[in-house]
Design a protein around this nucleic acid. Structure first.
Lengths: 341, 341
DNA sequence: GCTACATTATGAACCGTTTCACGAGGAACC
DNA sequence: GGTTCCTCGTGAAACGGTTCATAATGTAGC
């Protein structure tokens, strides 16, 4: 039995040698088995097995060109919103036998760039990105070079790039409007940085609601930027507010994880929800309804978002870009209204 | 201005031509800029910009050999347990400037194979896998061919493959033991299929606790296999039990998502927790403490699990395999004990 | 026996990088 | 002025597949 050189993966040439055929034949066995005589095929297959040969994807792709993989870059892989979207994407891709690779940018433009570059250099068919910054020039460049790009959870400002988003202005408006309806006259908004479009939009929505109610945003709104968009960030933010003596009566959180941190803190501080402080979240994650004080939240069609995004990427490499905008809905629960179910 | 051929990405040769240098020089500008005279370098950089050249990752890798990426294959990307682990992995990889690609197998051995193959063919330095089956021969084969493999959340039965796991037998024992301590004499265990090692192990732990308490498992334990390991699966399972008239007094759920579904259902059915039914979950996800009835759960050091796994993969390609086993702890809350805080 | 035509197998060209031995042109030194 | 060293830049040889024109072989038909 011929041994391959130690520590070197067997190549197609090794297989060819072992099976006493040419490399072309091995390649045919791999890609168009019907073209090779059963006897030869078996010999080749035996050699493959014997040498435990694995195709070199880089070489294959270098010559063949394409690959049926698409990449997704989300802001935070630990955020249920994004993973729900990812499930939607996967579901759709599966139908066309595409595979999905997920990477997390952590809101860091550099990391986003790094992964984007990695995906592009490896020739994925397309990337779905939740951009960490407002500026999408780098994505336009990727698009121009021939890789499909779909913006996730963010309307596209450019006609050449498709996008699938949920109306965040409307979401902010729904949340703030609800709090105002409940009689609050001042809202604390625990938001992320405005460099994240969703955050800026939700802020705009809040303003819209305040103005519609005839309030002056300067006094009726306090926006606090949380350090990280998760429970720890929410906890730190609300704790900061409480310690400064500025106890809010209504808190709108940019996502449910932040809201979770807020609820947790309010409970340990024995502050009643919604009597003393009303809380509204965003995303309506699975556990929102089951919390100690069920969380009022803005629901987004996450799964559908992912499915649709994958749809756009698969269907139209050449077709004109499409911009899909879903509408969010408000789910009122006990954390913001004592009259809620 | 020279235009590259339509629909063909610019290659290093195009750049060389445009900058009137050799391909070797372009490569040097890309990889060891200090070796080329500033003037030439600038000319090359201008050409790169001009042609919006992007390295072909396949070609690069084909020649250069390695790549600083590692792949992770988890059972369910929407499960917080796995994404928390992924965060841990990322944190560790970042320190060494490695990148992480995550894929989700959905408990499907075929999908696991597909992604494993994809990762291996593309020459990742290593893969971290939560295997969907008991049989890990395919992983051994990958390891033998030179790609690093670390088993995630699953003790390795093979000396050549490192693993990082949490003692699931102990976890099952803790959960069941606690329920028995609370006075229950019959436990319903909503478990996943035993083909998933974690499920089989937790079951073994439950048995151990029952036997230690002098009970006969045949009558003191009812194991129900849930269709999917999430809230919907939990809801369906408990609903099935209730409709069959077999109302349990103590339910142990294989993870917190399943427990969430159970709690949700019990609440809509107006069944009191823990008075009528005690519930224990597994994973101690972030929201467990904040639920309407705070959920008793088995806590696993998820983040640490990920960090340690990445550690093993990065440190020891050649070093002997290591098997790390963490111990879980039980966090008692209101869902299982009226005396809990 | 000769041509015509499938059917299989072959081997070289090619994909786009990196790497490396080598050459050209100075500078430095004796 | 000749030798030695350096600094830059060159060009061709890999890397490991796929593809395609071509060769070898066999079969049919006349």
């Amino acid at each position: 039995m011929t041994q391959p050189a130690a520590h070197r993966r067997a190549s197609i040439a090794d297989v060819a040698r072992a099976a006493r055929v040419s490399v072309g034949t091995v390649s045919n066995v791999l890609n168009r088995p019907e073209r090779v005589l059963p006897g030869t095929r078996e010999r080749v297959e035996a050699a493959i097995e014997d040498l435990s040969f694995v195709r070199n994807g880089s070489a294959r792709q270098l010559r063949a060109g394409t690959i049926t993989t698409i990449g997704a870059i989300v802001l935070d892989i630990a955020n249920p919103f994004f993973t729900d979207v990812a499930r939607g994407i996967e579901e759709r891709l599966d139908r066309d036998d595409f595979t999905l690779m997920v990477a997390s940018s952590d809101d860091d433009p550099d990391r986003e760039q790094r992964y984007l570059r990695l995906f592009e250099e490896h020739g994925v068919q397309g990337v779905m990105v939740v951009p960490a910054t407002n500026d999408i020039d780098h994505l336009l460049a990727v698009r121009r070079r021939g890789t499909g790009v779909v913006l996730l959870d963010r309307p596209s400002s450019d006609p050449s790039i498709s996008s699938v988003a949920v109306d965040d202005v409307r979401g902010g408006e729904l949340a703030a409007g609800h709090l105002l309806d409940e009689g609050h006259t001042r809202i604390v908004f625990l938001n992320g940085p405005h460099t994240i479009r969703q955050c800026a939009d939700r802020h705009a929505g809040v303003l819209k609601a305040l103005v519609a109610a005839g309030l002056d945003p300067a006094s009726a709104l306090l926006e606090v930027t949380v350090t990280s968009l998760n429970a720890e960030g929410g906890e730190a933010a609300i704790r900061g507010l409480l310690e400064s003596g500025d106890r809010p009566t209504a808190v709108f959180c940019v996502n449910d994880l932040v809201a979770l941190g807020v609820l947790r803190t309010l409970r340990t501080e024995n502050i009643a929800v919604p009597t003393d402080v009303a809380v509204v979240g965003y995303d309506d994650v699975a556990f929102a309804a089951e919390l100690a004080t069920p969380l009022t939240s803005v629901r987004q069609p996450t799964h559908e978002l992912g499915v649709r995004a994958a749809d756009l990427l698969l269907s139209g490499t050449d077709a004109a870009a499409q911009h899909v905008m879903f509408q969010p809905t408000l789910v009122v629960r006990g954390s913001s209204s004592s009259s809620a179910t």
